[in-house]
């Protein structure tokens, strides 16, 4: 393995498991880390090779490399995804992105063209904010209030949590502590990522996507209204809308069986 490859894999704490074809790259969304996929991985690993990693600034990634300019848009995260695909020399992987990371997957697929097999979007939204006829579900002031809520919740623990979140991937004892602090992140980064996530508008990018795409929606997803899925199916070039028999915004946690079944059916269809 080259140094550059090792660097990428360490930087994002990239994990590979499972056997089968094609390879699925699971990309966690805003608010958490790769452990969000822990319930679906056992259900998929006999059929697919599975890659998971932490977005920079989240989980066990090397947060010392978080750069507010690079990650000021999803493009920075998309470049990281391309780096991970290159480092593992993945051939036509299927990119599975949750929530905002469905957009990161879209940006990477647009960049890599036919080096990416297809895209699975779990509860995606190209824009959380309403624009004219487009219903995203939120107004700008709701997002500002969210940032305040984050501040209010990070007030107490930031100093005492700091040692745990400063862990480096090459020190396993730190990773241990990280898994114990599920979903915790450096407050400053979490706030920045929230801003990037909820203010982004990637409607043009999903419209430009030529890959086959599965748009998975749940009922009662407060983050993504039903209208968003309909908009995507109507405006994307090769998107199929699939409504899971599930509720909420995180079906891969709450409904791993339903979620993995839908991914498997789509991915196997692609492989054939």
């Amino acid at each position: 393995m080259t140094t550059a490859t090792t660097t990428v894999l360490q930087r994002h704490d990239v994990r590979t498991t499972g056997t089968g074809h094609p390879t699925l790259v699971l990309i966690h969304g805003y608010g958490c880390d790769k452990t969000m996929w822990d319930s679906v991985i056992p259900l998929l690993k006999d059929d697919f090779r599975i890659v998971t990693y932490d977005l920079l600034g989240c989980g066990a990634s090397d947060i010392s490399q978080y750069d507010k300019v690079r990650y000021g848009t999803l493009d920075g995260h998309a470049s990281d995804l391309v780096d991970v695909i290159d480092a593992l020399e993945l051939e036509q992987p299927i990119l599975v992105g949750h929530s905002v990371s469905a957009m990161t997957a879209t940006l990477a697929a647009n960049r890599l063209g036919d080096r990416v097999g297809a895209v699975v979007m779990v509860c995606p939204s190209p824009s959380f904010i309403n624009h004219d006829d487009y219903v995203g579900g939120f107004e700008t002031q709701d997002i500002d209030a969210l940032l305040e809520t984050l501040d209010a919740n990070y007030l107490g623990w930031s100093s005492e949590m700091a040692p745990a979140i400063m862990g480096t991937p090459d020190k396993p004892e730190h990773c241990e502590r990280l898994t114990n602090s599920f979903c915790q992140a450096d407050p400053d980064i979490a706030r920045h990522f929230a801003r990037v996530t909820f203010r982004a508008d990637h409607r043009a990018d999903v419209q430009a996507l030529t890959h086959d795409a599965l748009v998975m929606q749940c009922r009662d997803d407060v983050i993504v209204p039903e209208a968003v899925g309909l908009w995507m199916e109507r405006n994307m070039q090769a998107a199929k809308l699939f409504t899971l028999d599930a509720t909420g915004h995180c079906p891969h946690i709450s409904y791993p069986r339903e979620t993995s079944d839908a991914i498997r059916q789509f991915a196997k269809g692609q492989a054939g």
């Binding site: 608010g31 809520t149 979903c183 407060v222 915004h249």
Partner: peptide
């Protein structure tokens, strides 16, 4: 849904952080 009692910001926070945390942790 419990989130229907919350402010819009609280709904996002509950669904992206609290519910996953309750389910995993």
């Amino acid at each position: 849904p419990f989130y229907s009692l919350l402010s819009p910001a609280g709904r996002i926070y509950f669904e992206t952080h609290i519910r996953p945390m309750l389910q995993v942790e």
